[in-house]
Design a protein around this nucleic acid. Structure first.
Lengths: 198, 198
DNA sequence: TATTTATATTAACATTGTTCACTACATTTG
DNA sequence: CAAATGTAGTGAACAATGTTAATATAAATA
């Protein structure tokens, strides 16, 4: 019974890894049951022995990518930053992750996975993701009386909707039309939202 | 030769109308060649005599819906409003349109039509849409020295990315999870961006 | 009227997700 | 050890998608 469990988890892992590779490399549009299974080295029907359906599999990828993204941000942000500077840097790193893996942005924010996600737990995780990443820094700002609790919430929400909206345009519609313009706009507006003077 | 033109345009119109009805009613996910053709009263392959492919048809819908949306906003916003108040009201009306027709939001901002849209002309139209709607009001604000030209651009961009991001979460992920919460957050944050005191 | 042109449709193909029935193998049981 | 049971992996098949080629029918022209 324990062996079964291990083997089953291993098999699931093969499919999950394959799916993640495809999303990272070829993007979300390239995902298909047959595609995943081929890369995993199994027939496409075998996948259904380990996942209810393809959404079930994708669902797991979302969770994995969230951890990966958090790690990516931690690696990219200078450790000694605190407060607003840390929040800005983390938001930039957050966007960089999706610039590097546009397929994961699609998966997180664009793709209609509402059907699969009946309990909405993952949706909430994504919704609060940037806030969780920046939570301690906001608390730091509040303690130092740089902002009130309410302001912190407002700024946080604004930051999230702004960066998501901007990424949506840039990744999905190529507007702004080049990368430099994108970063300039991004950095400037993050500064505006956080009321930072550069 | 002229008759041909009229007839051809009429035929195109049948398919376009059918497609728009489906998008408005059942949402973008319900769109399919067979679905459109059935509603138009023709066989599905007939569609290909009038449109290069389904993207070509959808493309026309985008343009139509843009006009419709502009009209919707004009109808909903009080005529006597000017400046910041007009901008806020128009942005709210803008979001209301997509709340009413979520399928059109998908079409405008979510769906990957980048392939079809080789010249990117439509993309740019969408990108600058809210700005065009509010253009005169911004100019009004600048003339009255309420904001500088640069501030107007910043606020405008922020407004657009914010409202798009918020709609993306609300329509695509049901976050915030109820409508009242959505409007409260929306109205408050629009005020913040425009630095209005309520 | 007969021929040509245009147009609507039927048939077909490729690609998607998913289900079903079968085979081969492993595990348990007598 | 042999027989029964169960399980894991697979190919065939189905329905729905977009798209194309060939065909039949309607319209226009000679």
């Amino acid at each position: 019974m324990d062996k079964k469990e291990i083997q089953e988890q291993r098999m699931r892992g093969y499919f999950i890894e394959a799916a993640k590779e495809i999303i990272r490399g070829e993007g979300f549009k390239a995902i298909s049951v047959r595609n995943i299974a081929e890369r995993a080295g199994y027939s496409y029907t075998t996948l259904y022995n380990y996942f209810k359906d393809i959404k079930d599999l994708i669902f797991v990828c979302v969770k994995d990518f969230q951890d990966e993204c958090a790690q990516f941000i931690a690696d990219q942000v200078k450790k000694d930053l605190t407060g607003m500077a840390a929040i800005k840097s983390k938001t930039i790193a957050f966007s960089n992750y999706f610039i590097q893996y546009p397929g994961i942005f699609e998966l997180f924010y664009v793709e209609k996975i509402s059907d699969l996600n009946s309990q909405q737990s993952t949706t909430k995780l994504i919704y609060s993701f940037l806030d969780r990443i920046c939570e301690e820094d906001w608390n730091d700002c509040i303690e130092k009386k740089l902002v009130t609790k309410e302001e912190a919430e407002d700024y946080g929400a604004q930051l999230q909707f702004f960066i998501t909206g901007l990424l949506l345009f840039y990744l999905n519609r190529r507007q702004p039309s080049d990368y430099k313009e994108f970063t300039t706009l991004r950095d400037k507006q993050i500064g505006n939202i956080l009321k930072l003077r550069s």
